[in-house]
Design a protein around this nucleic acid. Structure first.
Length: 184
DNA sequence: TCGCCGATGTTCT
DNA sequence: GAACATCGGCGAT
């Protein structure tokens, strides 16, 4: 199965599969340790009420980015999943920093290593991801998603963070034991 | 260590 | 006019 086909698998499957993959922007980034799935018919999803200007990338091709701006100051990045047009995606919530740590420290205000990328807004600040990158093909530089070179991770499922709708669904996934997740 | 709260601007009702 | 897939600082424990 090739790269783009992988993201047409069920979104839950992709959300777990992405743990261990590497996300980088101009070679700066790290290993994904936490994700959340957002599905069709899910009241917590930005696409629940259909396509808008803001969420357009979510209805585009799988394997591309959907980046949005929220709370007046933060960007967050998703990987678009499912057959094109279904409006599903996986929010990238935390990375274990592996590459370009000095650059990330500068952008993040000299934070401790475990606080560089342990949240969706922090990732975008550390890597320099903005709305201009929404719709970007994640197989292409500068924003790049690459398969894991490590053994399969042990995955924990939990409720998602920061939502008010459909709070009970276990659509958050993280690498068991990782100190780099956003919340235990 | 935990929980509350304010910042800040875009999007949608 | 309200809500928001967040973050960091501050005060209480």
């Amino acid at each position: 199965m090739d790269f783009s086909e992988l993201f047409t698998e069920p979104t839950i499957t992709v959300a777990k599969l992405l743990l261990g993959w590497e996300l980088t922007y101009d070679g700066v980034g790290g290993r994904i340790v936490e994700t959340e799935a957002y599905l069709t018919g899910d009241p917590a999803s930005h696409t629940y009420r259909g396509e808008t200007l803001r969420n357009r990338a979510m209805f585009g091709p799988p394997g591309h980015a959907y980046v949005y701006f929220t709370y007046g100051m933060h960007h967050c990045m998703n990987v678009v999943t499912g057959p094109s047009g279904t409006g599903e995606g996986v929010l990238i919530r935390a990375l274990e920093p592996t590459r370009g740590l000095e650059i990330m420290r500068q952008r993040r205000g000299d934070k401790k290593e475990r606080e560089l990328c342990n949240g969706p807004g922090k990732i975008c600040q550390a890597l320099g991801i903005t709305r201009a990158d929404s719709g970007h093909d994640l197989q292409k530089a500068p924003l790049l998603l690459q398969p894991s070179s490590l053994p399969t991770q042990e995955v924990v499922a939990a409720p998602r963070i920061g939502i008010r709708q459909n709070v009970e669904a276990l659509y958050r996934f993280y690498s068991k034991g990782s100190p780099f997740i956003s919340r235990p």
